[in-house]
């Protein structure tokens, strides 16, 4: 499921709420209503014949098993092929620990920055009309449409020894390329669209009326943002942050170009996986890979939960 389709469901949900709320004042649906709904269930008219259904489901399941479940199983099987002790040993290697630390640091930096940039960009696009708005929306998508390797090369062109700022940086003894700043920059660039893309449709749907109401009630700009805007977008924001984090930790191409692959210094987890694999250290390689796979699984679970909250249109169901 792509992130757009996940979000697109929430506006339609919101629209469904408004008219029904007018008719029955928050009373739970009566048994008659429930029955009526069951009778007119759209599934009745859409049901395929049994064999067709079976074939379609079987095809989908086979595909899923071969291309998604099997590789995942293989990763863990390889990682534990020499027993738990060698798995733990592989993960506590200094090089491995350094890669984990660097990955967490870079992810923290890029999620933090993109949280701020993403909210600002989405705010500007959704709540204001200005010239060049369409261009800005296109620009936000640029990191998605450009190959990550190119994204990395851009930073080499800018900050490399032969790059535009290279001599100046060298003169001031500032290391960008083949150091943490370069890796962070490349990751920030690649993961920029996630937060903004998660928020723009949500904020556009919500409009500016609640903010206007808050301001007319005497709230300052900051109060309006923290008390009205942020609570309204919090699930969408978490959703964007989650995907942003997953990509930041897993990014390979762009980071590979700017990292320099200095062992124990500028290797992130994905880079280390490749290096270890190339050196035939399969257990160590797949042990690190299993961590990334687990990250993916956790992301998936949290994403599902968040999507459910978004579908509810952020209307608390208790009370």
């Amino acid at each position: 499921m792509t992130m757009q389709s996940g979000l697109a469901t929430s506006p339609t949900q919101l629209r469904v709420y408004a008219p029904t709320a007018d008719l029955d004042v928050a009373s739970p649906p009566s048994r008659e209503q429930e029955r009526a709904r069951a009778i007119v269930s759209p599934r009745d008219s859409r049901t395929e014949p049994g064999p067709v259904r079976f074939v379609i489901i079987a095809l989908a399941l086979t595909f899923l098993t071969v291309f998604v479940v099997l590789p995942l199983v293989v990763v863990f099987a390889q990682a534990f092929s020499k027993g738990i002790s060698s798995y733990v040993a592989a993960l506590t290697e200094p090089e491995a620990l350094s890669a984990i630390r660097l990955t967490l640091l870079v992810a923290a930096i890029s999620v933090g920055l993109n949280l701020v940039f993403g909210v600002i960009a989405a705010w500007a696009i959704a709540k204001f009309d200005f010239r060049g708005k369409t261009f800005l929306i296109t620009l936000i998508d640029l990191p998605f449409s450009v190959s990550p390797v190119i994204s990395g090369l851009v930073f080499v062109l800018l900050f490399g020894a032969q790059g535009y700022f290279g001599p100046w940086l060298q003169a001031h003894n500032i290391h960008v390329l083949f150091a943490v700043p370069g890796i962070a920059l490349a990751t920030v660039f690649v993961t920029f669209p996630f937060v903004a893309r998660a928020l723009i449709p949500l904020m556009q749907e919500q409009g500016t009326q609640e903010e206007e109401a808050a301001i007319s009630l005497g709230a300052s700009g900051l109060q309006t943002f923290f008390r009205v805007t942020l609570p309204n977008i919090k699930w969408g924001l978490l959703y964007g942050v989650l995907l942003c984090n997953a990509r930041a930790m897993g990014e390979f191409g762009a980071v590979s170009v700017v990292s320099g692959h200095i062992r124990g210094e500028t290797n992130t987890m994905p880079l280390l996986v490749e290096i270890l694999y190339n050196e035939y250290q399969f257990v160590a390689s797949f042990a690190i890979a299993s961590l990334l796979a687990m990250l993916a699984l956790i992301t998936l679970v949290v994403k599902t939960v968040l999507e459910r909250r978004l579908d509810e249109g952020q209307i608390p169901s208790d009370d």
Partner: peptide, 20 residues
Amino acid sequence: RGASERQVGFVFQHYALFRH
């Protein structure tokens, strides 16, 4: 003065209640 300093009560056509 800005809108927040005018002490004007404004009621919107679509209510604009804070949904959360």
